[in-house]
């Protein structure tokens, strides 16, 4: 039995130094790895396209040509801009309202007890139901679309931020009180920094949820935007068009995440390093 365990240990031990070595290679080695993984994905796609040779799976080159054509005709940039604007407004709205409610619920137990049931309800209503009801109640317009998206996201922001508000360090708040700091400075310098990790978690999860819901909203009730275009391509069985829009949209979201949210988070949590 003991010999068996030793064998297992010997079998696993080489893996440890290898992993350490990769970690030490740092960001540059990691970047190469990421590029390689992207290339591998494209290669697999190309192989699959050759293998199936079907109009329902166009090869990468066709899709990229389509992206270029749609960009040249300005159709793609226009619809993309409209969708991104909806994402941005709904995202900011959901984050602001959700954070405010979350802070209030984390702070006042009675309010928490009062609203907790609504929160559970909000968390469990399917996105589709909210969207349909918003269109029925507010009409097929942008307000209804954005309200529907924000309503879907607010409950999850509330839950996360409430967690943060409950975990606020009373001892640091006492410092603010003992030194009679003005309310605004207490909020911005003592309270809010403690919520940053929770707000950032909400923001990142929120972005990925919201841009998916926005497409559904556009598909169901708007006459422009990426979601509307996807629906049209679906009806025309235009797979290259669907893939072209999807690729560009996903790339934009990735860039927002990598060039916007991640540096922001790094800046805000600089003190941890």
């Amino acid at each position: 039995m003991k010999a068996g365990l030793d064998d297992v240990a010997a079998w696993h031990s080489p893996a440890v130094p290898v992993r350490r070595a990769m970690k030490r290679r740092g960001p540059r080695g990691e970047g190469l790895l990421r590029a390689a993984s992207l290339l591998a994905f494209l290669a697999l796609w190309q192989l699959a396209a050759w293998f199936f040779a079907s109009p329902t799976l166009p090869p990468p080159a066709t899709v990229f040509a389509r992206i270029a054509a749609e960009t040249a005709s300005l159709a793609l940039p226009t619809h993309l801009a409209i969708t991104l604007a909806r994402v941005a407004v709904a995202f900011l709205l959901a984050l602001a309202i959700g954070a405010a409610i979350g802070i209030a619920m984390g702070r006042w137990r009675r309010l928490d007890a009062l609203l907790d049931g609504w929160l559970v309800l909000g968390l469990n209503i399917p996105a589709l139901v909210t969207i349909i009801l918003c269109y029925v109640w507010f009409g097929l317009n942008d307000t209804a679309a954005i309200v529907a998206v924000a309503l879907n996201k607010i409950p999850t922001v509330v839950v996360t931020v409430r967690e943060g508000a409950r975990a606020v360090d009373a001892r640091l708040m006492q410092v603010a009180h003992a030194y009679r700091l003005p309310r605004l400075r207490t909020f911005t310098h003592v309270y809010l920094p403690q919520l940053v990790p929770y707000l950032m978690a909400s923001a990142r999860a929120g972005l990925s949820l919201i841009w998916k819901i926005v497409l559904v909203v556009e598909l169901l009730g708007r006459s422009n935007g990426v979601g509307f275009q996807l629906n049209m391509f679906f009806q025309l069985f235009d797979i290259a068009g669907i893939l072209a829009y999807t690729l560009v949209f996903a790339a934009v979201v990735l860039v927002v995440e990598a060039a916007g949210l991640r540096p922001l988070e790094r800046r805000l949590t600089r003190w941890r390093t």
Binding site: R171, L172, Q174, V175, A178, Y179, R180, H189, V190, P193, V196, L268, W271, R272
Partner: peptide, 13 residues
């Protein structure tokens, strides 16, 4: 009034 607590209680950020 200045106040010094049992712990330093500095703002880590």
């Amino acid at each position: 009034i200045g106040f010094m607590f049992q712990e330093p209680r500095l703002m880590p950020w």
